[in-house]
Simulated scan of single mutants.
Amino acid sequence: MSKPPLLFFIVLAIIAVLATRQFIKQRRETAVNDASPVRTLMVKVKTKREYPSPNRRSRQREVIAGEEMRYEAWFHPLNGASDIKAIVGERDYNQMDTGAQGELKMQGSRFVSFTPAQ
């Protein structure tokens, strides 16, 4: 049997380094979010969209029944600050309407809740 080529080990090392870096980045972001206070902003729902989760994306363009979806919403603060993108749950996504104004609660970059104004 021949020895595996050096290139194979280099590619494995690169994959391991990149995976470790991504894991550390996610852990750090979670720690920052957990340590951040919950902030409340008055916002308007600018737009929202749903799409297949990146880790379950198929090569086809149509949505497959039972496929895991990801929900995202863009909020525009009424104080004129820059837009905020948040990953939201399906229940929250279905309850918010584009153009609706209300109170957005965020903890760091983590979405907590959106309550429409009455």
Rank of each mutant, 00 (worst) to 15 (best):
E90G: 04
L78K: 08
P77A: 11
F111R: 03
Q95S: 15
K25I: 02
N55W: 10
V88P: 00
R27T: 00
V17H: 05
K44L: 05
I87H: 08
A31R: 14
F114V: 00
S109G: 12
A13R: 02
L41M: 15
E50G: 04
P5K: 14
H76S: 15
A31D: 11
R39K: 14
N94G: 04
T98M: 14
M96T: 00
M69T: 00
F75Y: 11
T40K: 13
A81H: 06
T98A: 15
P54H: 03
A31C: 10
A35E: 11
R28C: 01
Y51D: 02
Y51A: 09
F23L: 02
Y93L: 06
D34Y: 07
F9V: 00
L12Y: 02
K105I: 02
R28E: 12
T47P: 02
E103Q: 15
R70M: 06
E67R: 15
Q107P: 01
R57M: 04
A73T: 08
E62T: 03
Y51K: 09
N94K: 14
W74H: 11
L12Q: 01
Q101R: 15
R28D: 09
R59W: 07
G80Y: 03
H76Y: 09
Y71V: 00
S109A: 14
I84T: 13
D34N: 14
D92T: 13
I24K: 08
L41Q: 11
E90D: 10
G99L: 09
